[in-house]
Design a protein around this nucleic acid. Sequence first.
DNA 1: ATTTTTTATACTGTATACAAAATGCTTGCA
DNA 2: TGCAAGCATTTTGTATACAGTATAAAAAAT
Lengths: 227, 227
Amino acid sequence: MASEMVEANGRRTVATISRQSLHGEIVTRLRDMIIEGDLQPGERIYETQLGEELGVSRTPLREALKFLASEGLVELVPSRGAVVKRFSAKDVEDMLIVLRSLEMLAGRIACAVASDEGIARLRSLHDAMVKHYKAAERLEYYKVNQQIHTGIVALANNAPLAEVHGLLQSRVKRIRFIGHEGAERWAGAVAEHEGIIAALEARDAETLARELDTHLANGWERVKSVV
Amino acid sequence: MASEMVEANGRRTVATISRQSLHGEIVTRLRDMIIEGDLQPGERIYETQLGEELGVSRTPLREALKFLASEGLVELVPSRGAVVKRFSAKDVEDMLIVLRSLEMLAGRIACAVASDEGIARLRSLHDAMVKHYKAAERLEYYKVNQQIHTGIVALANNAPLAEVHGLLQSRVKRIRFIGHEGAERWAGAVAEHEGIIAALEARDAETLARELDTHLANGWERVKSVV
DNA sequence: ATTTTTTATACTGTATACAAAATGCTTGCA
DNA sequence: TGCAAGCATTTTGTATACAGTATAAAAAAT
């Protein structure tokens, strides 16, 4: 794969210490490639070609593709292999509706079960995000923004909840990444985040849920135009 | 696989007309085996052995296992292969919390977008379920019950919602299947269902959400003892 | 008797080879 | 020139073979 080395004896070894199997590495690699747009929606995946590109044989690559198919990032057409899944505007809207509901649920639970340290960590993430906003660093802002939303879900301490949230999140990432909102809307999003963090610190479940509701509904409005 | 035939020339062919690939068939087959308890939680899966049992080689079987790993039904331990995932009581509770939230969301949406025919179909399913209840046919009752819950989600016409619901549903099926409640509780569940269908027919989103909320919360109480 | 080391075995991880299916192109014919 | 049929090529689907690793058992040493 990417981080391979050729040793003196000519054997290929993987540089990482992680015991993760090859198909596991390929999964994360391909997932990133899809999210970042290296593999375009609707694009057909040729196994031998992609395999040579990654320096692996077809077997682990195919196993990785099956995994990603279950995640919903690629589609398996019988006898025609894998295709990067393409989402319609309705698909994205539907996903965001579910994501919104999941985050609201997570927020409510988090108010009850989150540790003070966890909330404090989120506050500092928020501060970092505001800094990126003021510096107009869109990419950095976007990344920290993601971390905050994921962080809220994590605070709920509910593994299946975090899992399905992450599943849908990974699908819309590709879309959101493109959505570059105007200055006013961006400012609005930051303000909403402030309200979210405040409600969380106050452990006010209903207010938090309401804040998340409007924030994520607005989020869809912000993205809608580009889908 | 199950429906294989040996032809005169000795070649194995699959009887089904479906164009589904072999690993696809294995996925559904294994999923059923796990849900129905043929493969017990914590049990290690030996690829060669299971492959011979199913009449397939290791390659498509492994691909199927990767798929199921992404679904969360099996766990992949590096260098030790696949193990049927075991869920703790907290895991199950967490899943049911999410399922409850998802079904409430689906119910609210369904009230707005479901077709009259769709609601009527659900009513007739409910009637069938009541019949099974009165006849004390537990297994039949259980199956129709599942169909109703899945049906409510389907009415929302939101594919990702249905998908994640189905994902979690498949995991708790194994558990719910065991939960045999007493007569009083069973009667309560049926009564709750009547309220759910009524609220749906009235397209009363808030009432429906409330009914689903209590029904599914009670569902957890009913199952809790056996986990 | 217990612990450690060695060795054998069994299973997983990966690659390669083969078979079947689909697609595209060429050639023949109207 | 347009169309169709057949052939060639490409690609997926499946099986098998080989290499690496973990586990368990047996033997040796303390």
